[in-house]
Design a protein around this nucleic acid. Structure first.
Lengths: 197, 197, 197, 197
DNA sequence: GATGAATGAGGCTTCATTCAT
DNA sequence: CATGAATGAAGCCTCATTCAT
């Protein structure tokens, strides 16, 4: 077969965590969608939380790859930041990425084991890191306004989190919302004319 | 007694929904913390979702009052927007507001009844409305850059959502994070010098 | 009804723990025999171990009462010791006492919580205490040979444990086994003629 | 390697049955401790009960050998009985004998197949037999009081069972407990002076 | 002989909700 | 209005056993 049962399980879990959220995603649902026995989940992943961790990490890993790949080819810092944001938002609405796993479930609420949360936090920090690097590039090449890189990266990621939630969870997002959000970011980091950077 | 049993129940529910999230908050926990019988919850509120709705609406109502009160006394549009954001963030970290109810629980995941969700959405729209008005003021009095009000309001609210989640749910928020976020907003809506509005 | 559902539950549990042992006694079996819903067990007793603890303590309490009552009316120390042993053995083969709960289940293997085990140990020590007192009486009135009371009490209780297990668990116990065991005890504590006590 | 995989499996099983009891000893634990695959257990032993039977019989076989060897060299019946008891107790606290298999697990509760239980009973009877022979020796050579051999053997074995359980399972056993138990047996079978045997 | 993925029945426990008092 | 015993469906997880490799 194309997928091993373990892979089928992980894929079904990613789909369902993204569709139903953590608590509404039951072992039974996952097993049925994957077409395997329920017991196979604990056999391969230990427990529900560890299964979720595996799902989340896989999504984050793919996400991180995309972000790095994108920013690497940006011509300057400002472009890298905006490309980062665009890649973030594109990734978030591509169904094949299973991004919803990280929106519908919350590592901070659903994972009770601190150790598991720490593993995931580490990955999140790498994602921040890519943006921090882009901002530093922008500071070096003068393409953006003078800001503190870590603070600003955290704010921009927070903005991505917010607009993404608004878009995929609520009915408020107007047409062209993502594009406007990029403009918003751009305005916030564009060097002010006639002011020394 | 100072509180009726119904009020005690609602307060205990708000505390626990904010501390534990929707699913981890059980009728038994609420009844114990409120010091009343379990049966009183369905008696007064019907079911868990309706109880949550009552909690959420009360928090939103207080929130809305604070936002309106704040922006009403701002000298101009720009100030109104920034005051709105500041009030949002202040409210979100004041434990007595039970804001966490809206962070730890998600109306979009935890409420299964569409009708209930609609009621809550309506309130959220009023909150957007206050910011839309502030932006329109800013466009009128020229204190901000020319932007589309609904889009921009949605983006700024999204940013508030994002920075708030980062601050209260994750370990990433640096010192002075909220202040920097306000600066970020300000830069994004400040009129560009030498450019016609 | 004659029994409350809680009492019915406890009685069914005592019966089944004694018949089937700890692990083979399932919530389902107990609920069915008691004629109540499964959920009522955790509602009233918390969990399986706590339910078992309640069963064991009730049996021990009755046992202790019988032992005290019996030894109180013995004419001297020697008689008290033998009456104690006889009461022990009689109690152990009276089906209405649910003694088997303590034979088929082991507080030391089946109870995982140390605190629960300690509670039960305390009760066991009271049972030892009754025999220790009887032995001290025998030492005082010269009706038994000179021995160390705690050691001897522990040995005699151990003998009771052993002969009881042999009788109720194995096919080895010959006719008149319990009577012979009493004789054995008697010989072991009878003062040696012509030897100063 | 020193041990075949089958032997490693049996040794791991003996260790774990003694440490954890029957139900808490899982195939997975055994396989992990032995460092072999789970499937090998049913391959070599059929099922869990048969594996337990193999463990128990091996322990009993070693035990029986030790008892026979010991009593064979005792100078008279009384000595043989006391040597038997001492050997029993020594064996029971020697970790290398895996005696705990027979204490933490119960052939009478854990083995559901009657045929398996019968096999084990047979071995237990041989153990009784060794003591019966010793008692008969004592009756013949006049070194012990006149008693019925089978009854007395069963009682003494029961006492060993009891004191052993007290020592290895409970916190009650005082220092010198085993020595006192031997004295207790000795007093119970010592010929009464001035009384015809 | 050896492996470990795979199964699926069944265990304990949780919990929103009902209802007699 | 108030209580809490009672319900029972459903959740996660365990585990002996099977079987293809």
């Amino acid at each position: 077969m194309a997928l091993t049962k373990k892979e089928a399980l992980l894929q079904a879990a990613k789909d369902l965590f993204g569709e139903c959220g953590y608590n509404e995603t039951t072992f039974k649902k996952i097993a049925e969608r994957a077409g395997v026995a329920m017991g196979l989940m604990t056999h391969h992943f230990g427990n529900k939380e560890k299964l979720f961790l595996a799902c989340g990490l896989e999504v984050l890993e793919n996400f991180l790859g995309k972000l790095r790949e994108t920013t690497a080819q940006s011509p300057n810092g400002m472009a890298a930041i905006l490309d980062y944001c665009k890649a973030y938002l594109d990734f978030s609405i591509d169904p094949s990425t299973n991004w919803l796993v990280l929106v519908r479930c919350s590592p901070y609420s659903d994972m009770k084991t601190t150790a598991d949360r720490d593993i995931m936090n580490e990955k999140f920090l790498e994602i921040h890191g890519v943006l921090i690097d882009a901002i530093k590039r922008g500071l070096d090449d003068g393409s953006i306004v003078k800001v503190e890189p870590v603070q600003t990266a955290t704010i921009i990621v927070s903005l991505m989190v917010g607009v993404n939630r608004t878009r995929v969870l609520t009915p408020y997002a107007p047409d062209g919302f993502y594009e406007q959000a990029l403009e918003f970011v751009k305005r916030a980091i564009t060097p002010v004319p006639g002011q020394a950077s």
